[in-house]
Every structure is written in structure tokens, then in C-alpha cells.
Design a protein around this nucleic acid. Structure first.
Lengths: 152, 152
DNA sequence: TTCGTATTGAAACTGATTTTCAATATCATT
DNA sequence: AATGATATTGAAAATCAGTTTCAATACGAA
């Protein structure tokens, strides 16, 4: 029942490209630009944000290619959609295994944590509701250490 | 630490109208139609679904009024938005107090449960991440007893 | 019943995402 | 390294959800 937190890994950039290649997709400049941008981000980004950031390095990138690349990365489970009260269009580098998100309400910085222990709750809710529970979402919102300091 | 599950209450229809009235809004046929439709639903509905259902009884209802009524009901916390892998535009009757959703992956039927006990997890994650945790989302997905039976 | 005004539905508009399509770039094969 | 089949591209058009505008209407206090 270890609780561990960790940030999205910038170094998985090459893994993503390998994975795209292995899945039969060609490695192109637009795809590299999107992968680069998302893999380097500490926080979830939506299509337009990725477009704007990536164009700083690769100005001819089209927004359509951002959408198309996101679609493929999501299918390959290299990225995942982040749900948020203000919207659910943003994506962040995915994690293998059973992980939950912890999101800063001020700067958006995201970390993953594991080690929930909800089996007893599953059982009780299943018993009382008659539902067969298959999946769960758990997400924490708060203020990261940097934003807490900045507030003072 | 009681775990209790319960369905959205159809009988709060009148409460919603009273609440709208008390907040200075007029009681109109379009609003009644939207309230009626949502209060009677066991599952979360989006604007278009509400529009289609409500028009069976009140054909002159406009989609714009559905959006406007949803906005007010959400502000008054009579309904809440339901996040789902397939989309986050649906609303369901809200519950007072600290409640979490349990959603059927087959028919969409939703129930609320309470009684999570995540304080220890909060503390551990806060300690290890440095975040000050403010809020959490917990949602279960599964198959309701009816859909489990129907599968056989 | 009257009347001020909140609310309505239709139409126009916005912003996000998808589709279409001709031009281009990738990469397996030579 | 050059070739060529075809996957991928960006731009423009199309679609879709949601919002704004506005003149007509309906609510409800007086």
C-alpha cells in the first residue's frame, strides 16, 4: 500500500516516437513537435495550447495535425485526458499502472499518485447498490508547494 | 462512516421550482419542462437529450431555454455536471452533502453514495507531494443490477 | 386588469473539432 | 542514393455545441 507521487516523465519522448513507429505510423515533424511539447509539460494542455507552444519551434505546424496526433497518442495510451471543473479537453502524459491525478488549482501542475485503498469501499457500495463495480476515478485538487509559497 | 446509496429524487421537482422562485426567477413553462425532465431521470442528460424529451410534452420549447435553465439550476446547486469518458456535458439532480457518483456503464443509471474515508490518503499524498489538498473527485463505474441480469 | 420587465424562441454568431482534398514527405524497396 | 506507393500534411470548408442578440411574449406584483 505504498503511496508514491511522481511527475510526468519528459524522457519518455523517445518512447512515444518508438511506440508510434511500432504501431505503423510514420515519424513526421508535426508529430515530433506535438510529442515534444506534451512530453515536456508539467501540466495538461489542450489542442490550442499545444499548437501555440509547438509553433514556437515549428511554425508551419497545423492545428489539424495537433488534433490528429492527440487522437493517436490517446489510442496508444501514451497520453490521457484530464477532467477538470473548467473543461475536459486537456491532455497529459499518461502513466502505466494504476495512477491518480493531483492537480494544482493555481498553475495547473499535475502529479500522479498511487496507493489508494478503496477495496473496502468498493465492496460496501457494491453490496448496497447491487452494482458490479468495474472502474473508478479519483482525482485530487489543491495548491502545489510553489503556488502556496507565492501566495504569501 | 456510513456508506449509503440513493437515487436522485423525483419528488424534489417542487423543491426546485420553489428554489427558482425564491431566487427571484419566474416560473415559466419552459423551466417547468426542463425541471420535470431532469427530476424524473435516473441518468444524467445533456442539453439535447433534455430538449428532445421535454418537447414530447411541451413541443414549443427552445433549446436555448434548456441551456439557460441548466445554467440557473447549476448555480443553485440543484443539478450537477457528470463527467464521463464519453463526454462531460450531462447533468443530473444534485445531492446535498458530500456525495459521490456510481454510474452504470450500460444504461447510464446513476446513484449517489457517501462514506468515503480518504483522510489518511489525503495526508500521505499531501506530505509526499507538498500539495495542499482542497477537493477531491471520486466516481465509480460499473453495471447496475438490472443490466447485470439482462446480460444473461 | 394593468403594466414593467424577465423570459422566450429564432436566427446569427462563436469557438472547438472534423472532414475534404490536393500537395507533400516518409520510408521500404531498389 | 534514387524511386515510388501511400500515409500524412495544412488550408479551407463543414459540422457541432453552446452563446448572444433581439423583437415578441408571458409572468406576476400592484
Amino acid at each position: 500500500m505504498a503511496t508514491k507521487t511522481s511527475s510526468p516523465c519528459p524522457e519518455n519522448k523517445q518512447d512515444w516516437l518508438d511506440c508510434l513507429k511500432a504501431s505503423g505510423y510514420r515519424l513526421t515533424s508535426p508529430r515530433r513537435a506535438v510529442v515534444e511539447t506534451l512530453a515536456n509539460s508539467q501540466r495538461a494542455l489542450n489542442a490550442t495550447e499545444i499548437y501555440d507552444l509547438a509553433r514556437e519551434q515549428y511554425p508551419s505546424l497545423g492545428l489539424v495535425s495537433v488534433y490528429r496526433t492527440l487522437e493517436k497518442l490517446e489510442q496508444l495510451e501514451l497520453i490521457q485526458r484530464v477532467h477538470h471543473p473548467d473543461g475536459c479537453q486537456a491532455f497529459i502524459a499518461g502513466f502505466t499502472g494504476h495512477q491518480h491525478l493531483l492537480i494544482c488549482q493555481s498553475c495547473g501542475k499535475a502529479e500522479f499518485f498511487e496507493g489508494d485503498n478503496l477495496e473496502m469501499l468498493f465492496e460496501r457500495v457494491a453490496q448496497e447498490s447491487g452494482y458490479q463495480i468495474q472502474e473508478h476515478w479519483l482525482q485530487f485538487f489543491g495548491f502545489c508547494s510553489k503556488c502556496r509559497t507565492d501566495k504569501d
